[in-house]
């Protein structure tokens, strides 16, 4: 009788242990990832604007070397990004002479950039885009040349503003 009882126990153990071994076990865990993206604007205007002297009859419009403009902006979905320029006033020279700022115009290359005429009373659009992104283009200033200008070295300050709401 002892022998029979022992064999019966052994058989029962084999049956019980075989079922769980085949079962695959898994453990899971969750992690929440959060990324913050804030509004940003970065503007690079590279180059210098200088108009050389020229005969108004031969060169009625004097072109400067093109400026390279790089616009980087992060804004909300479907939001507008704008780049404007505003003159500090008319061209002035030390002797008191002036040249009206409206004689300064520009041409552009690059998607979203627009040609225009400088103004001191209000900002004028240089470019506009929708959504975040990088934009690059050129802006070539042109000065209307005139026999009416008094001799001198004129200057004006232009302020660019990039806005990404």
């Amino acid at each position: 009788m002892k022998k029979l009882i022992t064999l019966g126990f052994g058989a029962a153990v084999v049956l019980l242990s075989s079922a769980p071994v085949a079962a695959q076990q898994t453990a899971t865990a969750n992690v929440t990832a959060t990324a913050s993206v804030n509004a940003k604007a970065k503007l690079d205007v590279i180059g210098a604007v200088a108009f050389g002297d020229a005969d108004p009859d031969l060169t009625p419009i004097i072109a400067a070397t093109a400026l390279n403009i790089s616009v980087k902006a992060r804004t909300g979905a479907n939001q507008a990004v704008t780049l404007t320029v505003q003159a500090g006033g008319d061209f002035t020279e030390t002797g008191g002479g002036t040249i009206g700022i409206s004689n300064l115009t520009w041409l552009v290359t690059g998607g979203g950039f627009v040609a225009g005429t400088a103004a001191s009373a209000s900002a004028v659009s240089v470019g506009s885009w929708t959504n975040s992104g990088n934009q690059s283009g050129t802006q070539t200033y042109r000065l209307a040349n005139s026999w009416a200008y008094a001799t001198g070295s004129y200057s004006v300050t232009l302020t660019y503003t990039l806005t990404a709401p």
């Binding site: 969750n30 929440t32 913050s36 993206v37 804004t75 909300g76 979905a77 959504n131 975040s132």
Partner: peptide, 11 residues
């Protein structure tokens, strides 16, 4: 730079 502004989450 092209990312729209926001606070993004995922599990």
């Amino acid at each position: 730079w092209t990312h729209p502004v926001g606070v993004y989450t995922v599990t």
